[in-house]
Design a protein around this nucleic acid. Structure first.
Lengths: 349, 349
DNA sequence: CTGTTAGCGCTTTCAG
DNA sequence: CTGAAAGCGCTAACAG
């Protein structure tokens, strides 16, 4: 029924081994023989059996990409860039590796589950994107799992995530702390002293770093902070909306709102608008990431641009061994302050 | 070195077959035996070999998802929903299937390539999302390929794409024509008679249907169309921006711009703003899809909401055989007109 | 409920 | 440059 490599071999009058060599192109084969084999492949409409091939060769053409949620452009942009780089010649049987996208929802359990599933598939590489949960137990479990993966020959790259100790893993970390600091300095420069901070979930590295950057800027400027000014929530628009209402209720005198990311900032703008506050006339709002939609927001968001596509592409190349890993296995990907219309001089004083 | 099923069997003092049965949970095994096996698995830190398993069972736990570009939320939202539905119990070895996301860029060649790659992997199912290129040759090639996939036992579901004749495929088609008609009727009701239309790429089904709906509304209202009012471009923001400038140059008297989708509409708004036109006071703009960001645009976009997440979820369930296919194998997913601030009464008149 | 026995389809030394 | 042969690790009848 289904045509196998042996069928092709018979038709081309060569041994199965030769067919395999032609298909994988990683071994010298006489041009005439190759022609004959290729013709037979075409004539029989033969398609290699991936699992059989992976079993025999002990490695597959799959590359895992772990994301929190692929519907979020932050991850979508990175995943797209990674996917674009893992194709091309070099893989088994003439190139093209497949991207296995795993939505972890940021959950450590699902992360571990997917890592195991990828290990089961004998994935050629795995790229983990986005911040991690800060939990020693889970951190250790993930580290152990990654070690097992690398031991089995799977390349592991972290993109937008902190380095994992004692694992042969390359890391592309985002400059969250510095970016957040610049953002707050920008606001400080505009005269703001009373700023709300919409932080992400409390137990995430990304949340912590951005918050630390914000506070560092405040401290350097000698501005005291009110505990009511920091509200933790999710990284989505809705959280930003709700947290802003909270913030407004707690202290209506705020002149600026610093959001954990652009989506949250958009939610903040909506809540502010609803409360009759103009942005930036009454309250300035700043985001983080500079996602594609941020330039079209009302008003266009002041934010920190993270080169997500570039970082993803680089992660993809490193995962494929097509680019050298950075010295020490860790590189920082810096963000860049982008000033647009959502931030302006502090009102009144 | 790497621990195999046989090792587990030895340690648990059972046969390999029994271990396999425990792991796949699809066969009765005595509780005590199961316990013993599970313990051995844990102790040895055993992970099933996916390729070997897939080879022996002649099917894998992979589900292919073809998208134009996963960075585009239109596809990201669907992919996320599909992914959420393909997990869970029922697959080989205790559930969790993996989603292989393939960026085709809308190219028929890449589409075919990925379909072959998925066939090679013996994918359990494949979901094709988004409109297709209208080319008889490629259409036939894709149809043939899909037939081969279904013959091999791979379930195929089309989501937001037209039915494929003579293939055992289930289709969830979007109500593009009706949605577009409603949108234009809405504008007509507001007194608009001179509307520009920013169409997508000329050879796509989605483009054609939306354009047809627009024209049907125009024709029904007895409104004549100027050829200069239709401009073809891409489905991205930049295309909308450029096409709108073209439109404005060709006929500055337009009172409305109908965009192929929300991203294009955002680009249109930006171009209009730049040209000193206010939206909707001077020119109304409408989009299509109702992506998450559209509500936060300036001004909030009037559009047609497509239930992308619901459609994706349904496609996922059908692909997994967890939901019955619609009668006749084809269902239409209707859009819903959402009127917001980007459309208003025609100026002047 | 459990063990035995054949492969699944491919890759890869090892010879020639 | 090509062929022969030995598995890769697992599943699935088929017995018991």
């Amino acid at each position: 029924m289904t045509v196998t490599l042996a069928d092709v071999a018979a038709r081309a009058q060569v041994s199965p081994a030769t067919v395999s060599r032609v298909l994988n192109g990683n071994y010298p084969v006489a041009a005439a023989t190759r022609e004959r084999v290729l013709r037979a492949v075409k004539e029989l409409d033969y398609v290699l059996n991936g699992p059989a091939s992976a079993l025999a060769a002990a490695t597959s053409d799959l590359v895992g990409i772990l994301v929190h949620d692929i519907a979020d452009p932050f991850f979508g942009v990175m995943a797209s860039a990674i996917q674009a780089e893992i194709g091309g010649p070099g893989g088994r049987a003439g190139g093209e590796r497949l991207a296995v996208v795993c939505n972890t929802g940021g959950s450590p359990e699902r992360e571990l589950t997917y890592l195991t599933l990828l290990q089961r598939q004998r994935a050629a590489a795995v790229v983990l994107t986005g911040g991690a949960v800060e939990d020693a137990t889970h951190g250790a479990a993930v580290a152990a799992k990654l070690r097992r993966l690398t031991d089995a020959g799977t390349r592991v790259v972290l993109c937008g995530r902190l380095p994992v100790p004692d694992a042969d893993v390359v890391t592309l970390a985002f400059g969250n702390r510095d970016g957040a600091r610049e953002l707050t300095e920008h606001l400080l420069g505009l005269g703001h002293r009373r700023m709300g901070y919409l932080a992400g979930p409390a137990d995430r590295t990304t949340t912590r770093h951005r918050l630390e950057g914000h506070r560092a800027a405040l401290a350097a400027a000698g501005v005291a902070e009110d505990p009511r000014w920091t509200v933790h929530g999710g990284y989505d628009r809705r959280s930003g909306y709700e947290a802003t209402r909270e913030l407004l209720a707690a202290d209506p005198s705020l002149t600026a709102v610093v959001a954990a990311n652009d989506s949250v900032a958009l939610g903040a703008c909506a809540a502010l608008r609803e409360a009759g506050r103009r942005v930036p006339d009454d309250v300035s709002v700043v985001g983080f990431d500079d996602l594609p939609f941020s330039v079209d927001a009302v008003p266009a968001l002041t934010t920190v641009r993270l080169p997500l596509a570039e970082a993803g592409a680089r992660a993809g190349r490193i995962a494929m061994g097509r680019e050298e890993a950075p010295a020490g296995g860790v590189a920082e990907v810096r963000g860049e302050l982008v000033v647009r219309q959502s931030s302006g001089p502090a009102r009144g004083e």
